[in-house]
Each structure stands twice: as structure tokens, then as C-alpha cells.
């Protein structure tokens, strides 16, 4: 088997907490994980689970208390690894007085690109992230969402094999989130290894071949989302051809809204669809879609953490 793109082995980080008598606080506890080349991995967990700590250890912005992190077979922080990776920090911030293009030329230069090559690369990347028109504007005038896009562009300036994205969806509006999802999908399709963190399960559902789930500094589960036994908390049922009165007759008016002439019905866990569907069919309704609503990541953690051993 070829070398994994990313290997974490017993990675542990303690922070000293308290000024007078500092005590160690374990932010990351014995995390071991391998990410294969070309894999898109969602690194999920609620806030404070240790996601950003892991990414900072991989970038060697902080040093581990124990354990090792390797990227493409090189120890984290090694210049040989840095040459082949891209990193988007959480809520990125750059230099107020530079334009997006100048920032990319500066960073491109750090990878040894000539100014002309870096400028060409900057143009391509800024167009790709939708900032082509704003490329000469100083970054101080950029919105949070635009900075996030610049952050992605700078992470790709060296055409990296492995891309690390820390909460790439945060601070983005719905259009931005859609663009970001599409971009991550493309990065995966281009054969790059993508390691992205998020505290929102649905961000990962459509994108990842595999997820790793963190809670309180520990890795509690890895695998495909479908295999991870997220509890179903209800369903979203969309039907057409039924009127509001039909739905009311079933006693569901509280949980129903009409969208584009269709009835969208939120079913709770004690209202299984197999009981409701025949009723609706009798009223002439056709099912457009039926989607299970999974528990949130937070609920999952609460459940798994309180009952160890249940996670697969």
C-alpha cells in the first residue's frame, strides 16, 4: 500500500491553563488517524473538540505534547511537506494594505514562483474563487466571505496535493456555502487529498468519502456517514397533489408548510411515514421525496460520549 497522505499517530496536545499555577488541559488526546491519498475526509466535531488544534499541529503552528503527525511521509512542519500542501486557517485574515493579487504573488514567491508566474497563477485562482473583479482591491475592504475566498485561493497557490481547510463554511452566506461545497468537490475530483473540519454534519454528508468524529479531544468514530449509526430523528416528506385541507384532515397542519404548491411535512419520530403515506395516497397525494432527518452532531456526541462503546 502506498504512503498515506496524512498520518496521525497518538497525537496529543496539552495546554497550560491558569497563570499562577498552570495546570495542563488536554486539548487533544491520543488521536491516531490515516487519510489515504485522494480521499476527502470530513473532520467533524462540536466547537472545542480539538479540530483546530489538530490542524495547527499538522501545520506545526503548535508542537505536540506526544505523538507524531506526518504529511506525505514527511514530519509535520517539514519544508518538503509545506511545498506540497495548502492550508486555509479558520476565519483567515491577511494584510490590510495588500490587494488579493499582491497577497497571492507574495505567497507564490515563498514557493519560489517568479513574479510573472505568480501573477498568472493569482489571476486563475482569483477567477476560480469568484474574486476576479476585486483582485486589485485592498484586503481591508474585503468582507468576511471574500476573505474566506482569498483564504482558499492562497491555499491553492502552489497547486497542492493535500489541502487542509479549517471550518471552510464558516462566515459564508448560503451562496458562498454552495460555492465552497462545489470547490471542495472539485478539489477531490482533481485527485487532491482534502482534510476539512466542520461542526455541521450536513456540510460533510454530500462531500466526504469518510468522516472522522471528534469530541472532547478524542477521536470517537471514523467511517462513512451511512455506517455511523446516526439516529433518525424524523423525516421530511414532500408531497404534491394534496391540498392544505387534506393535510389538516390528518392532523398535520402544525408541521406542514407549502412551498411552490407542494406540501412539505416535517414528521416527528413518533409519526413514521409508513403510517401516513397510505392516508395521503387516499387523498390523491403523490410523494415527491422522503428524507430522514438525522440527529445533529451535538446530539450524536452527547449520546456516544455518555455511552462509550456504542460508536462503530
Amino acid at each position: 500500500m502506498s504512503t498515506p497522505a496524512i498520518t496521525l499517530d497518538g497525537l496529543t496536545k496539552d495546554y497550560a491553563v491558569g497563570f499562577w499555577r498552570p495546570r495542563p488541559h488536554r486539548a487533544l488526546d491520543q488521536v491516531s488517524l490515516e487519510v489515504a491519498t485522494g480521499e476527502v475526509l470530513g473532520y467533524l466535531g462540536p466547537n472545542g473538540a480539538g479540530k483546530t488544534t489538530t490542524l495547527k499541529l499538522l501545520m506545526q503552528l503548535i508542537y505536540p505534547t506526544a505523538g507524531t503527525a506526518e504529511i506525505l511521509g514527511c514530519p509535520a512542519g517539514d519544508v518538503d511537506a509545506s511545498l506540497r500542501l495548502g492550508y486555509l486557517p479558520e476565519l483567515p485574515y491577511f494584510y490590510d494594505n495588500l490587494s488579493a493579487e499582491e497577497l497571492l504573488i507574495y505567497f507564490g514567491g515563498l514557493f519560489g514562483l517568479s513574479t510573472a508566474d505568480a501573477r498568472e497563477r493569482a489571476t486563475t485562482l482569483l477567477d476560480r474563487v469568484g474574486l476576479g473583479a476585486a483582485r486589485h482591491q485592498r484586503l481591508r475592504r474585503y468582507s468576511k466571505g471574500m476573505l474566506q475566498r482569498v483564504g482558499i485561493a492562497q491555499a491553492l497557490v502552489n497547486d497542492p496535493e493535500v489541502v487542509f481547510l479549517d471550518e471552510p463554511m464558516s462566515g459564508l452566506d448560503p451562496v458562498g456555502r454552495r460555492d465552497m461545497r462545489e470547490l471542495i468537490r472539485q478539489l477531490g475530483a482533481e485527485g487532491r487529498t482534502v482534510f476539512f473540519s466542520s461542526h455541521i454534519l450536513s456540510d460533510a454528508e454530500a462531500l466526504c468519502s469518510r468522516v472522522a468524529i471528534m469530541a472532547r479531544g478524542k477521536l470517537i468514530a471514523t467511517g462513512r456517514i451511512a455506517d455511523l449509526a446516526f439516529e433518525v430523528r424524523g423525516w421530511e416528506l414532500v408531497v404534491s397533489g394534496a391540498s392544505a385541507d387534506d393535510v389538516r384532515a390528518l392532523g398535520l397542519e402544525e408541521s406542514t408548510r407549502e412551498v411552490d404548491g407542494r406540501q412539505v411535512i416535517e414528521l416527528a419520530i413518533d409519526q413514521p411515514p409508513d403510517r401516513i403515506l397510505p392516508e395521503l395516497a387516499r387523498h390523491g397525494a403523490q410523494v415527491v421525496s422522503l428524507t430522514p432527518r438525522h440527529e445533529s452532531l451535538e446530539d450524536y456526541f452527547m449520546r456516544v460520549v455518555s455511552q462509550p462503546g456504542e460508536a462503530s
Partner: peptide
């Protein structure tokens, strides 16, 4: 302070 060091240090610089 402004956290620009995060992206800077991830580049191939010591």
C-alpha cells in the same frame, strides 16, 4: 494578533 501568521507559517518557510 491578526492570525495572518497561520497561513504564512504553513508556507515553506522556516
Amino acid at each position: 494578533e491578526r492570525r495572518s501568521i497561520y497561513s504564512l507559517l504553513s508556507k515553506p518557510i522556516r
